[in-house]
Design a protein around this nucleic acid. Structure first.
Lengths: 213, 213
DNA sequence: ATCGTTGATATGGCAACGCTATGCAATACT
DNA sequence: AGTATTGCATAGCGTTGCCATATCAACGAT
């Protein structure tokens, strides 16, 4: 070996790439290299090219999303928790629109699929608790996936400008309610859980602190 | 005036651009011009540039989608019809993946928003009939929009390869069911309507014939 | 019928993009 | 200490979208 592969260059490249996205500037090879104080070759030694860098940015986006979801604590009402997770998901996407869109950009293969699956796992766990409490009859994996699908569709259309931003707040809770009702929850109690769960928001301090770690 | 703007060139450019997308080849200016038997300037005279051409392709995609939705006929069960519209939407997206993704590609401004709104209008009308029949209590526009959001989220994740193709069939009906239950429909009857409606498929003959018109 | 006007297209070139061959410098093994 | 190996800077290639210029066909006016 020689010239040990400095990991700081790698994280700096991902950092600057994410910064370019949040600044709404085009994510170009030369721009990333210049902002990172290096040359274009660094991207190739560390990521093998521009697609590799994008993959790393995606993985970073999922990592930050998982951190955000970890800020949602469990309560004695799992349906409330599931709604709170959905709200956190949508709010995170609204807060970081370009990064969220980059997370689903290319289509094939994340750098580390475990990171992406971990977010869904959090939803699945809450759905499993809801079934244990007798609230849901459907499979937890199915309920979690459908809530994710609904949230993603809403977020995607809002971030693309097809739907106004207010739509996220206006329809997010109703979409979650539908998923839970289809899972078998009792309507009245479900409405109450979704209402309180969707309104609950973890303080931003913790998630940001852990995000930088 | 001289050399009147030949509309055949315009439609040929859009046609070849859509053909490139369905062939999974990159949509480049030169490729479109060559396949259309003209030069790159034609794209600029007719669309002002590559973004304009993409806009036109999007509009064409929505036009074909509306034609597909028009193949779904009304029955005496509006909830059945709404589910059938959702199924037609998802199946159309699966059948034309690149065109569907292009429809929501850039974010700002369709060439003709009316064409895009017409698809949603079909859903809204069915939801309004459902309310007139006493099945729904929620606003028809809200129900239609939420079903659209669910279907789009499902389709988007499947077309990106995040979810397997089978997920579209496996979860599409359940997502529609959730939207209708949240709208206030009675669970048992709703399940029956969704089951039959989602399975119903208009024959492809008519839609294709009208698509070429 | 002829000619001048007009606008669409063909050509060629520009800047920027992703990518890579080459050379150099700095490190780790022997 | 000597050598090999690895990361990075430089420079250049092919392709992209875009545009300035020139050419040419089609129409209206006379």
């Amino acid at each position: 070996m020689a010239r040990p592969s400095d990991p700081r260059v790698r994280v700096e490249l991902v950092e600057q790439a994410a910064a370019l996205l949040t600044a709404d500037e085009p994510l170009t090879l030369r721009a990333v290299a210049e902002r990172s104080g290096t040359s274009t070759m660094a991207v190739y030694t560390h990521f093998g090219g521009m697609p590799g860098l994008r993959q790393a940015v995606r993985t970073e986006g999922f990592r930050r999303l998982v951190i955000r979801l970890e800020g949602v604590d469990d309560t004695e009402d799992p349906v409330h928790d599931l709604a709170a997770l959905g709200a956190a998901y949508v709010r995170h996407g609204l807060a970081h629109p370009h990064l969220y869109r980059a997370m689903f950009d290319p289509g094939i293969g994340l750098e580390n699929e475990e990171v992406a699956a971990e977010g869904l796992l959090r939803l699945t766990r809450a759905a499993a608790r809801a079934r244990d409490h007798g609230r849901f009859q459907a499979e937890p994996t199915d309920v979690a996936l459908r809530q994710w699908v609904s949230g993603h569709g809403l977020l995607d259309l809002v971030l693309r400008g097809v739907l106004p931003t207010e739509s996220a707040a206006a329809h997010g809770a109703a979409l979650a309610l539908g998923a839970f009702l289809a899972a078998g929850d009792e309507p009245e109690r479900c409405r109450a859980s979704v209402r309180t769960g969707w309104a609950a928001t973890p303080e931003d301090g913790r998630q940001l602190a852990r995000c930088r770690a």
